[in-house]
Amino acid sequence: MCFLKLSGIHFSFGEEIIFDDFSFELHKSENLVLKGDSGSGKSTLIKLILGFLQPDRGEISLKGNPMDTKAFRELRKKTAWLPQDLNMGENSVRELITIPFSFKHNAVSKPSESTILETFEELGLQEEVLDKQFTDLSTGQRQRVGITLCALLNRPLMLLDEPTSALDRSSKDKAAELLLGDPDRTVFSVSHDPFWIERCDRIIEL
């Protein structure tokens, strides 16, 4: 069943054309990975899906219905997004993880500290990381904190931008287990990592 469909997308930043008549379908419960060179618009595509950017032409539809502002807002409530380089400014890791659960929509699923620490442990993060400034973490630690948040949000759709680019082998295994392990979840990722790519159901080249 087609969950999300992008048809004939044309998108440009000024003179630079990023997508010209680009189409693809994301099926429900599949793990789809997009491969492509740096700067080919992979991150832009995720922002188009989230409604943060609008295509110049083309249509994005969800379960067969063209998406409008309301539909994008609803989609965001069902989505966990892992950006490639999460920038959280001066916030501590604890704040980064708790802020999203202070939002009304997520309040019911607020995790306990022990649940957060269990996920940390699975990804090889120490308890002390929770009280560190996010900016003081290494790229790999930041990525694992982002994965923790995605796992805790436990959404039916995950949009992951290079989810394993800075992880060691054992952390990759755990990340794949946490993010790809649920057979009902739909995962759209962009990645260069052969480890991640071979664990996805379908590959699209950009």
């Binding site: 965001r76 966990a80 920038n87 802020i99 999203p100 939002f103 009304k104 929509h105």
Partner: peptide, 14 residues
């Protein structure tokens, strides 16, 4: 810090 704002929106924030 547009990405931080977008990240919160993508987490389901109004």
């Amino acid at each position: 810090n547009k990405e931080r704002y977008q990240f919160f929106l993508a987490c389901g924030a109004t």
